[in-house]
């Protein structure tokens, strides 16, 4: 199989999540292939005549009959993607990249910290750990976004919030009266979450600066660098290590990442223009 050739997938459903975020559900155009992937992996999605972009998978890793991507319209390709309809074709290459340490975190408390669209790749982790809820200690899901209107997966979050075995906290950067939830950046939720810093795995995804602040807050509360994981983003053209675009020091985000332990990239993280 040539990794540079996209495979055709048919859009089963397009769902508008928020004003600028949407979810597409895809099924293979040919045959009954299953699509297996790990939590945290991404695909290169090709829109006919427009181009290709890396998008992380946001669906349940245990459901291999449908491929789910949630993304935000930020560029020409995602804009074109948002206009596609049920029955249209998308080219898919993947899945590529590393996965969240779902297995390694067994027995630990888990803190999931998501900022904005960063909740999409972390939703795969939530599916995974809830499937084996009893294998983990306390679980905190801390999610920050811009306004109450920008909250992703609202109904799912509400459902999760009602569970007694999860600590789900949502915060927004700004809100008018009527919002009775938290206001403030996501890092302010970290000191309020309950976890045993000696025995906790943290997984963070969001804008790089938000991850930076989150890491410093987690370290302040006693977590060590090897127990903090984050998902990095860089320009990507091929997804398989040939094009060189996604290099981050010695790492290729496409194949060594996108999920890294903080310990591994600590010497680069926050360095300017690396």
């Amino acid at each position: 199989m040539n990794p540079m050739i996209p495979n055709p997938y048919i859009i089963q459903k397009v769902k508008k999540e928020t004003q600028d975020v949407f979810t597409v559900e895809l099924i293979p155009a040919e045959g009954e292939q299953k699509f297996s992937f790990g939590a945290g992996q991404f695909n290169m999605l090709y829109i006919f005549g427009t181009g290709e972009v890396p998008i992380s998978i946001s669906g349940d890793p245990n459901k291999s009959d449908v491929l789910i991507h949630t993304t935000r319209t930020v560029g020409t390709v995602t804009k074109a993607m948002s206009k596609l309809k049920t029955g249209d074709t998308i080219g898919v290459r993947g899945p590529y990249g590393s996965t969240w340490p779902v297995k390694e975190a067994i027995g630990n408390d888990v803190v999931i910290i998501a900022g904005g669209i960063g909740l999409a790749p972390l939703r795969t982790v939530i599916y995974e750990i809830l499937r084996e809820r009893e294998s983990y200690g306390r679980i905190a899901i801390l999610y920050g976004t811009r306004t109450p209107e920008d909250i992703l997966f609202k109904r799912e979050l509400e459902k999760l919030k009602s569970r007694l075995d999860l600590d789900v906290q949502v915060t927004v950067d700004r809100a008018a009266r009527g919002w009775n939830g938290n206001v403030g950046v996501v890092t302010t939720l970290i000191p309020r979450a309950r976890f045993d810093p000696k025995n906790t795995t943290a997984m963070i995804c969001g804008p790089e600066i938000m991850m930076k602040y989150s890491i410093s807050e987690l370290m302040k509360s006693g977590l060590s660098a090897e127990k903090i994981f984050l998902s990095m983003e860089r320009n990507m053209k091929c997804g398989v290590g040939f094009c060189g675009h996604c290099q981050y020091g010695p790492e290729f985000i496409c194949k060594d990442g996108p999920v890294f332990s903080y310990k591994k990239i600590k010497h680069l993280f926050g360095k300017r223009e690396i």
Binding site: Y46, T50, G51, E52, K237, C238, F242, C243, G244
Partner: peptide
């Protein structure tokens, strides 16, 4: 040096 880019055209 091996870096490449891709160009999609119609």
């Amino acid at each position: 040096c091996f870096c490449t880019t891709i160009e999609d055209t119609t």
